[in-house]
Simulated scan of single mutants.
Amino acid sequence: MTSRVHISEVGPRDGLQSIDRVMPLEAKKAWIKAEAEVGVPEIEVGSFVPPKLLPQMADTAELVAFARTIPGLAVAVLVPNFKGAERAIAAGAEKISMPFSMSETHSLKNVRKDHAAVIEEIAAIAARVAAEPAETRPHFEVGLATAFGCTIEGPVDEDQVVRLAEQAIAAGAAEVGLSDTTGYANPAQVKRLVRRVKAAVGADRLNTLHLHNTRGLGLANALAGLEEGITTLDSSLGGLGGCPFAPGASGNIVTEDLVFMLEAMGIKTGIDLERLLEVRTIIAEALPGEPLYGFTPDAGLPLGFKGTQE
């Protein structure tokens, strides 16, 4: 198991896209700045989707520009298609992630494309990324959404996930990630699928898990992934997040709980957990009444807790 985990905060994108209210731009900036200052190394600041579909994400270009001024912060965004990727590159995003639903029904609902069309889109984005000068070229990851199950189709065949992962890499993606979009995964399934996809595309082409805690297995699934060589975990401050096109799929892993688990185990994150807990105040004040989750924020840190003391 790795001795250090890279935490990618997805709350400003996955969290905020899942609620009706629009967080003010200045509050988003304060949130991003505060998390970066406590040591969060990567933040997915938004997504380049049409504002009429997700008005919560209309200010993503401004957030990318702001986040790029923060020293040491990796600035990530989600893009649904080639047009979104072009906007992300123009804005200066350092990492772009495109969702690729392993459930074709979910893909049609989410991005209105079947699997063949998504592979074509991946190839077009990869070519556009490759054409960018090395110093401004973003890292291009494809997130294999609904990899562990779908709220529309139910179980998703693992052979299909492996096959589509191979096709995404062949089309030019730098790496793939596995996403439990619907909160269906269990630890045995996570270990099995991570092992199979790594074997198919190369161990260095699968580093990331995006997990939900819908049924309380988020941290168990994260640990299972780490045992299979995963080094990057997505999470959301306060557990905000879900998928607008997967009914009932609520609850990203709570960043605060994830950091506590890792640091308590002696796995380095580079994050000051005590200060991270204070960042929740920004969300609570900007979105009064919005439910925030997490056991660690409620219980507090154990007496004598020191973390990895970086």
Rank of each mutant, 00 (worst) to 15 (best):
Glu227Ile: 05
Ala127Phe: 03
Ala36Arg: 07
Ser179Phe: 11
Pro155Met: 13
Ala91Met: 11
Pro80Ile: 01
Met261Tyr: 11
Asp257Glu: 09
Leu273Gln: 03
Leu78His: 04
Ala93Met: 04
Val162Thr: 05
Ile19Val: 15
Arg13Tyr: 12
Ala249Tyr: 07
Gly251Asn: 15
Phe140Ile: 12
Ala199Arg: 12
Val279Phe: 07
Asn221Arg: 11
Gly242Pro: 10
Ile119Trp: 01
Asp272Trp: 13
Gly84Val: 02
Pro51Glu: 03
Ile70Phe: 02
Val77Asp: 05
Glu227Val: 06
Arg215Ala: 09
Val45Cys: 01
Glu135Tyr: 03
Ala85Gly: 07
Ile282Met: 02
Pro288Leu: 05
Leu73Trp: 05
Glu166Gln: 14
Cys243Pro: 06
Ala299Gly: 03
Glu278Asn: 00
Glu62His: 05
Leu108Thr: 00
Ile19Phe: 12
Asn110Pro: 06
Pro302Glu: 00
Val45Ala: 00
Gly172Phe: 02
Thr182Pro: 08
Ala126Glu: 01
Glu310Lys: 08
Ala147Asp: 03
Gly84Thr: 00
Ile70Pro: 03
Glu141Val: 14
Val194Gly: 13
Ile96Phe: 01
Thr69Ser: 13
Met57Phe: 06
Ala199Asp: 01
Leu53Arg: 01
Val259Gln: 05
Val5Glu: 13
Gly154Leu: 14
Ser18Trp: 10
Thr214Arg: 03
Arg4Thr: 11
Glu274His: 11
Leu262Thr: 10
Lys83Glu: 08
Pro133Thr: 11
His115Arg: 13
Phe260Thr: 08
Leu301Ala: 05
Ala36Leu: 13
Thr232Phe: 06
Thr308Gln: 09
Asn207Lys: 14
Leu233Asn: 04
Arg68Met: 06
Leu240Pro: 03
Pro247Val: 09
Asp234Tyr: 02
Lys268Tyr: 06
Ala27Asn: 10
Ile169Glu: 11
Asn81Ser: 12
Glu227Ser: 13
Pro24Lys: 06
Thr255Ala: 09
Ile119Arg: 10
Glu42His: 12
Glu227Met: 06
Val64Met: 01
Ala174Ile: 00
Val194Ser: 14
Ala286Trp: 00
Gly238Gln: 07
Arg128Cys: 09
Glu263Asn: 06
Thr281Cys: 02
Ile19Gln: 15
Arg192Cys: 01
Glu158Tyr: 15
Lys306Glu: 10
His212Gly: 05
Gly248Ile: 06
Arg196Thr: 08
Asn213Tyr: 01
Asn221Lys: 11
Leu258Gly: 03
Phe48Trp: 00
Phe295Ile: 12
Ile70Tyr: 01
Ser3Lys: 07
Phe245Thr: 04
Val162Gly: 07
Ala124Gln: 15
Ile267Cys: 10
Thr105Ser: 13
Val259Lys: 02
Ile7Phe: 07
Ile283Asn: 08
Glu44Cys: 14
Leu73Tyr: 04
Gly307Leu: 11
Leu292Tyr: 09
Arg128Ile: 02
Leu223Gly: 00
Thr296Ile: 15
Val22Arg: 08
Glu62Arg: 13
Ala74Gly: 10
Gln189Ile: 10
Gly92Leu: 02
Leu16Trp: 04
Thr231Asn: 09
Met102Asn: 07
Gly216Cys: 04
Ala61Arg: 08
His115Ser: 11
Ile43Asn: 00
Glu256Gly: 07
His139Ile: 12
Gly242Phe: 06
His115Trp: 02
Tyr184His: 15
Val79Thr: 08
Met98Glu: 06
Ala74Lys: 13
Ala147Ser: 14
Pro99Leu: 02
Ala123Glu: 07
